[in-house]
């Protein structure tokens, strides 16, 4: 129950309404520091909306999203402007439909991710244009870091190819590497295993476990692939119609009747039983 003792992300009473549609209804959950937390639920349950609220693409209608830094200080994500969530609060994300800079090379993609630190090194462009200051060194450091991630995702050979040329699985890995280049405390992955074959999703598991082990990065992921969810996650939160229906370790979730009902529906007898109880 690490998520209750030392949460990195604390979501309280989060509600998101789009006009009359309530996409998320009074959702509260915690994600533990150093945990891999999975957010699961049937299609349309509001998982991606939760992600968009956490990463600043939507401003929640109600509620609080607090990120706890290692030193114990809080940052309220719902109050930060969109780009600061990555830069100040150190929350990185990937997208359900891959959003790489397809016309830029793989290496450039990883350098764009290090924009803010390079921007400071180049004296906010003023020193960089004149060729003074430590930009050259900072850039070679950034390339070193990019190389480290390229080795990790096995794309070093394709570093100078356009990102749009990569096969699908490699694009997914590159997007994760790009998010990791921003040096995040919390990495939010929106369906990282979608469209991967069993071997690729097995590799993804290994990559995510090594990210957690080596980089002090906690992971929050949305996933439909149960082989990924059950194998690597420490904590599962289940959403249905915008409300939390279950929260616990993978083994608890696996046997929770509400989760099974949400995914598979309930038997006809039960429906009849409930119908007779309410006198319909």
């Amino acid at each position: 129950m690490r998520w209750l003792q030392d949460p990195i992300l604390d979501v309280q009473h989060l509600t998101m309404r789009f006009g009359g549609l309530v996409a998320i209804n009074d959702l509260s959950f915690q994600a533990g520091r150093g945990d891999i937390t999975a957010l699961i639920g049937p299609n349309g349950a509001g998982k991606t909306t939760v992600f968009n609220c956490i990463t600043g693409f939507y401003k929640p209608t109600e509620g609080m999203i607090a990120l706890r830094k290692p030193d114990g200080s809080h940052m309220l994500l719902e109050r930060l402007p969109g780009f600061s969530i990555n830069w100040k609060a150190k929350v990185a994300r990937t997208f359900q439909n891959i959003r790489l800079f397809s016309g830029m090379t793989v290496l450039e993609n990883l350098l764009v991710a290090q924009h803010n630190s390079l921007m400071i090194a180049s004296g906010f462009t003023f020193l960089g244009v004149l060729g003074i200051g430590g930009y050259r060194k900072a850039e070679s450091d950034a390339i070193e870091r990019a190389k480290y991630w390229l080795d990790k995702i096995r794309l070093t050979d394709r570093a100078d190819d356009p990102a749009g040329d990569l096969p699908y699985g490699a694009q997914r890995r590159l997007e994760i590497a790009r998010a990791m280049c921003t040096d995040p405390l919390l990495l939010c992955l929106d369906e990282p295993a979608a469209g991967l074959n069993p071997r690729e999703s097995h590799e993804l598991n290994a990559l995510l476990l090594s990210i957690r082990k080596d980089h002090a990065t906690s992971i929050l992921l949305i996933e439909h692939d149960m082989s990924v969810v059950m194998e690597i996650s420490d904590h599962v939160v289940v959403l249905d119609y915008g409300t939390k229906i279950s929260d616990g370790s993978p083994s608890e979730i696996r046997s929770d009747p509400r989760v099974i009902a949400a995914y598979l529906g309930v038997a006809d007898e039960e429906v009849e039983q409930v119908a007779s109880e309410i006198g319909a």
Binding site: T55, G56, F57, G82, F83, S84, I85, N86, W87, A92, R93, F95, R99, L100, F101, S102, G103, M104, E108, L111, V112, A113, Q114, H115, N116, L118, M119, S122, T125, G128, V129, Y135, R178, A179, T182
Partner: peptide
Amino acid sequence: LPVGRAWEALREDEIACRSLGI
């Protein structure tokens, strides 16, 4: 320089730029 790469990244995908802290 980073600013030029950010311009091109912006042309490629603005939403991804925002998610990377630009």
